[in-house]
Simulated scan of single mutants.
Amino acid sequence: MTIPELEAQLLALTPIDKAEAISILTQSLKNSGRPITKTLGVMGGDACIDKTRIPVWLLASYRNDGAT
């Protein structure tokens, strides 16, 4: 399927079906191997390793200090 074909099919969906499609796409992006997330209320909203409270800035700091 080409992007223009997909676009035509998406535009033909009902608003409820469009919302479901967005939800499916959002979930697939979350599970696409991007292990860094930002969640309001978790570590002040800083970027963290997914499903942890380990902030990325901490790991970057360790790396800058010579840790491997």
Rank of each mutant, 00 (worst) to 15 (best):
M1H: 11
P4I: 04
P4R: 06
E5N: 05
E5Y: 03
L6C: 10
E7W: 02
A8F: 00
A8H: 06
A8R: 09
L11H: 07
L11V: 01
A12C: 02
L13F: 02
L13Y: 02
T14E: 06
T14S: 12
T14G: 01
P15E: 03
P15C: 08
P15R: 01
I16D: 15
I16P: 13
D17K: 07
D17L: 03
K18P: 04
K18N: 00
A19N: 08
I24M: 03
L25P: 03
L25S: 03
T26A: 10
T26G: 10
T26C: 06
S28W: 00
S28P: 03
L29V: 11
K30I: 02
S32N: 11
R34W: 08
R34V: 13
P35W: 03
T37E: 11
T37Y: 05
T37K: 06
K38C: 02
K38F: 06
K38A: 14
K38H: 10
K38N: 10
T39L: 09
T39D: 04
T39Y: 05
L40W: 00
L40E: 02
G41V: 04
G41K: 07
G41H: 07
V42N: 00
G44V: 09
G44W: 06
G44K: 07
G45A: 01
D46C: 08
D46T: 10
A47K: 12
A47F: 11
C48A: 10
C48R: 11
D50R: 10
K51A: 09
K51V: 12
T52G: 03
T52H: 00
T52R: 04
T52Y: 04
I54H: 05
I54Q: 06
P55K: 14
V56C: 05
W57A: 12
W57N: 09
W57Y: 15
L58Y: 15
L59I: 15
L59Q: 15
L59G: 11
A60E: 07
A60T: 12
A60K: 08
S61D: 14
S61N: 13
Y62Q: 15
Y62T: 13
Y62P: 04
Y62W: 13
R63V: 14
N64D: 15
N64K: 15
D65R: 02
D65C: 09
A67N: 05
A67I: 12
T68K: 14
T68P: 07
